[in-house]
Design a protein around this nucleic acid. Structure first.
Lengths: 295, 295
DNA sequence: ACCCTATTATAAATTATTTTTATGTGGACT
DNA sequence: AGTCCACATAAAAATAATTTATAATAGGGT
């Protein structure tokens, strides 16, 4: 069986018109007719049915079943091409969430450069959900993912390499600045400045407010932790961030949370279980684990 | 690209010998050579390498990457064939764990017969792990699965339809027979007769003994709940089973467990997310939900 | 009722692809 | 040096896919 036939059929289920599909692929119309006939013979079933009354093409039950599988075969093949291309080019594409890229990547990059691996590395940015899809679709080889729950997906091999608590950051002028530790419930009447672009931060924060039964007063949301920290320094409000964002500023104080069963910011290295790691990629993994785990 | 080439290559990665693969497929040796050359051209990479010194065939990095994807494409195609065959034959294959088959299926079968659906249904038995693989590999369309944790797999659509506690069953002559409820920790010095063939029962039982810090005295393990119940009736020991196994015998007494956070026997209906349900299969699902959920 | 159009099917010819047959090559083993 | 093993190559043969040309079918318009 030829993959091309599956491709023709897949398009046919989308466009529902033999002639248009033929044009789409730059072939003549009988080519499509014959391809569908081949598939119908191979699977010994009718795949499509013409409805002349409504002038449309109906896909049969078995046709829809084939379409589902055809889609996933075609996707798998596309991933295969992408992966092998990257392997032959000796390139690795690494998916990085912005937080990790901002605060850790300089260190990682320095180590990789020392090993001569930086040239072969290309990064793409994105939130955890986006990067999970990018991994799945073969758009990147390895990704770092932030999460609150341990990640569990059959198609992904996941190594958690770091668990970090979330902390509260307040201005040095803030009444709480002389505290070292506190409970989240003490923050009931505070003004919050929050990180907008992190699904993980927001989920963790919502968990804590819900558990402590209060509606937080969120005065501002920003997409950049520097902006948040500057606002906190000016005492516009306080913030809630994972400690990997700790910048050691002397105008901002970090306060630990003492609550039981706090959410944790889990960072994991993930790659497809289907993916064969090259020597270079294994080296990238080692560097990531060393740099990120020990920091 | 022809699927056949992937099949040739897949076998080559297993057998590592062109001539043997040719014989395996009943073709001549150059056929395999040329197929591999086609794939190498398509993916613009070397896939295999001859090691004349050790007289063996090495698969390159990219070759192994292709092999992984080829395997999954070939499996998907096989599933497609199996599914479409069953669709055209109007058959449904239902995977049933023995416990559920023994105690619930008569009721389900009666309802299905009334609807004229029983003839088209074929069942296969097996433990939850086995049935999950059977589902994945297209050997069955729908399966009932027992578990303690909620099931979560990307390729499976899962509906939990019943949660049931585990209970203790003792003989009417047993000192505990006049109790209605008890804590698991009270069973520290009891003799147990356990169900052998259920992964789920054993996991739940182990959870409770570990939590209560004792090593149970297991005097016998059987694969059939009737045998277990007969032994319990004779007061050879007591047992631990989910309540779906309740047989309303008057020589055996069921005792509820009062422990917090008890494990639950979760029964779920599962099918591949890739699977298109036919009208008949949807009817089977409805009957299953009604019969099993309300019991 | 007739023609027109849109859409798909069919047949034969053409072109492309795959497989076979026959033979070559390189190296290990004796 | 000869032989065998394992794979490669070239040309011929066999298959398979595509195109060209044309047919079929049915709905819509007049």
């Amino acid at each position: 069986m030829n993959i091309k036939d599956l491709d023709y059929f897949h398009q046919l289920t989308l466009q529902k018109n033999f002639s248009q599909v033929a044009e789409y692929f730059g072939v003549t119309q009988p080519t499509i007719t014959l391809a569908i006939q081949r598939l119908e013979a191979e699977f010994a079933t009718k795949l499509v049915q013409r409805d002349r009354v409504h002038n449309q093409l109906l896909i049969t039950d078995t046709g829809r079943q084939l379409a589902v599988h055809a889609t996933s075969i075609l996707r798998e093949l596309q991933i295969t091409h992408q992966e092998i291309d990257r392997l032959t080019q000796q390139r690795t594409i690494l998916g990085l969430p912005p937080i990790i890229e901002n605060f850790y990547f300089p260190k990682v990059a320095a180590r990789l450069q020392a090993l001569g691996e930086l040239e072969n590395l290309q990064t793409i940015a994105g939130g955890s959900v986006h990067l999970r899809h990018a991994l799945r679709d073969g758009q990147c080889d390895i990704a770092l993912l932030g999460s609150i729950e341990p990640l569990s997906y059959q198609q992904l091999a996941v190594n958690e390499f770091d668990h970090r608590p979330f902390s509260i950051f307040v201005s040095r002028q803030h009444p709480l600045a002389n505290r070292k530790r506190l409970y989240f419930s003490e923050l009931r009447h505070e003004r919050f400045i929050l990180f907008n672009s992190s699904f993980v931060h927001n989920t963790a924060f919502n968990k804590l407010t819900r558990r402590n039964h209060f509606r937080p007063d969120v005065v501002y949301r920003a997409n950049d932790t520097h902006i948040i920290m500057n606002l906190v320094a000016e005492n516009v409000g306080i913030t809630f961030l994972t400690t990997i964002v700790d910048q050691h500023r002397d105008d901002v104080v970090r306060l630990e949370l003492m609550d039981d069963e706090q959410p944790q910011f889990i960072t994991s290295i993930a790659y497809r279980t289907n993916h064969v790691l090259t020597a270079a990629q294994r080296q990238v993994l080692t560097v990531l684990r060393q740099t990120l785990g020990s920091a």
